[in-house]
Every structure is written in C-alpha cells, then in structure tokens.
C-alpha cells in the first residue's frame, strides 16, 4: 500500500474509532431502554469541555481529563435518564424523544453561556505536554494523539466487552434487552439497570468528546451536532442493538469519510458518509448485524 494511503487509513481509523465509541453509547442505551436519545451528541460535547478545562486549567494529563469526563458524563447521563425517561416511563415514546431534544438544546445554550459561542483551543504548549512523539511504521508517522485516540478506544471496547459478557451487571443488561418484563419478574430493579446502561453509554460519549476535542484542539458548543447524528446513523447501520455492529459501522464510516477527503471531496465528506450508510441500509435494511439482540456475542 502506498504510504499516503496507509497514512489516510490511520486517519480514517482514528476518526472511525470515535464514531464507534459514540455509536456504542447509542446502542447501549437503545438496546436496553428501546428508546433513542437525541442528547447524546451534547453529552459528548460536555465531556469535551470537561477535558478542555482539566487540561487547560488544572493539569496537562490525558488520563485525568478522561477520568473527569467519565465521572461528569456518567452523572449527566443519569440526569438525562431521569428527566427524559424515568419520570416519563408511562408516557408515549415521542414525549421522551422530545425531552431529549429539549435537553440537547439546553446543553448547547448552557455551553454558550459558560464558554461562549466561539471555538476555544487549549494553548499548544499544554497539548505538547500531554505527550509529544511520533512512531514511524513503514514510512508513515503516527502521532501521539492518534495513538492515544486509538489506544483509549480499543481499551474501552475491551472493557465494555468484558463488562457485558463476563459480569453480573452485563448479564442483567443483556437479559433486560431481551425481555425486561421477565427480568423484572426475576427481581431485577429495572430502574437501576436503565440508569446504569444510560450512564455507561454516556461515559463512552464523554470519552469520545475528550478524544476528538484534544485531537483537533477545537471546542465549541455545537460540536456534538454532526457527531451525534453520524454516530446515531452508525448505530442504525450496525443494527441498532448490536455492539459489534456499532463498532464495525463506526470504523467503516470513518474510513469512507477520510478517503473521500483524500480523493478531493473534502466539502462533500458528510455527503459521502451518509450516502454510504444509505447504501448499506438499502442492501441490508436491518443493518450490518441487524436482528441480533444486544451483545449476545457469546453465543454467536
């Protein structure tokens, strides 16, 4: 493979892994609650700003920024779950949907109030302090930030896989996704599990926010819009209830987008990725891994 293609391949993977993380969040939440949240992109944005403040003001550490974003977005996720779903359990689905849209608008405006509408950046000196080296593979330089984004994403996916397939919480989440009434008849407190699933999904979104924010060093209140939309689409393309599907779809979309830029269509990269998703859905209306219940990866 010519080195510029390999270069773009790494870029695409980096971009795609972030979509995958966000899409995993959607899938976690939809798989468990059978409901869509439209505030996920804004949870991602809030995670990004959390990382921004930590690195800018407190200490230039990726780990610290990620931990802070994890805690903050888990709590934010629980608040969204309470407001949009918990208190509206018996309301029509559209009501919950509208509330999540309302929360997303509220969060964007809140961010504008706190950080202003313009794009903020971390001073480059501070970014360099996070880690400043490159690795050369076959004539291609992979930067520290790319390694960090890919590494954190892969690590989180492994942790998620472990939690879902090897822990009691994961087993209960899978059981709830398959038959919540039967789970509740087993004595499962479904409200707690809904909250846990929402918190986990939101944490994945928050981490993605920190990664993207630092990677491009751009933080702005509407940064969650297109990412949220694309990640939701990735989750649909993946089959909406399949965790592996979300990962594969996210990576594919990142690659398609990056290569469309490479071949001169940078203004149309969103068009390319959405056309790609529409094509997949035309061919496989249930999504890539459609029809399979959430994360029954063990039995595959």
């Amino acid at each position: 493979m010519p080195s510029f293609l390999f270069d773009q391949f790494i870029n695409g993977l980096t971009q795609g892994s972030v979509y995958a993380l966000l899409a995993l969040g959607f899938t976690m939440i939809f798989g468990t609650l059978r409901m869509v949240t439209f505030a996920h992109g804004e949870v991602y944005m809030m995670g990004a700003y959390m990382g921004f403040e930590i690195i800018r003001l407190l200490y230039p550490s990726f780990l610290l920024a990620l931990l802070a974003a994890l805690v903050a977005t888990a709590m934010l996720g629980i608040v969204v779950e309470l407001l949009a779903f918990h208190f509206l359990r018996n309301a029509p689905h559209a009501t919950s949907l509208l509330v999540t849209i309302g929360i997303s608008i509220l969060l964007v405006n809140l961010a504008q109030k706190i950080w202003g509408p313009e794009t903020q950046s971390i001073p480059f000196g501070r970014i360099d302090q996070l880690g400043n080296f490159e690795i050369e593979i076959a004539g291609v330089y992979i930067t520290f930030l790319q390694i960090a984004v890919l590494g954190v994403t892969v690590l989180l996916m492994l942790v998620l896989y472990f939690v879902i397939n090897r822990t009691k919480l994961g087993m209960v989440i899978r059981a709830m996704a398959q038959d919540y009434e039967a789970a509740s008849a087993m004595g499962v407190n479904v409200n707690v599990i809904y909250m846990a699933a929402f918190a986990i999904g939101s944490m994945l979104g928050g981490v993605a926010g920190v990664l993207v924010g630092v990677y491009y060093n751009m933080f702005y209140p509407t940064m969650g819009g297109i990412y949220g939309l694309k990640a939701f689409s990735a989750s649909v393309v993946g089959g909406l209830t399949s965790l592996p599907g979300a990962v594969v779809a996210g990576l594919l979309i990142g690659l398609v987008e990056t290569f469309s830029v490479e071949f001169g269509a940078s203004n149309f990269r969103h068009v390319f990725s959405f056309v790609f998703m529409i094509l997949i859905l035309l061919l496989r209306p249930g999504g890539l891994f459609g029809g399979k219940e959430m994360a029954h990866t063990r039995g595959d």
């Binding site: 009691k168 087993m171 209960v172 899978r174 059981a175 398959q178 038959d179 009434e181 039967a182 789970a183 008849a185 087993m186 004595g187 499962v188 399979k292 219940e293 029954h296 063990r298 039995g299």
Partner: peptide, 22 residues
Amino acid sequence: LEARRLFPFLTVHENLLMGAYT
C-alpha cells in the same frame, strides 16, 4: 412465567443465574 419467557440469547446456565439474581 407464561410461555416460559426464558432469555433467548442467554445461555441456559446464565438463565439459571438470572433466577438467582436477588
């Protein structure tokens, strides 16, 4: 439960563990 309502995509062993959830 009526119609058994096992968790279809959990293993039989995991279904037993779900019974012991509490």
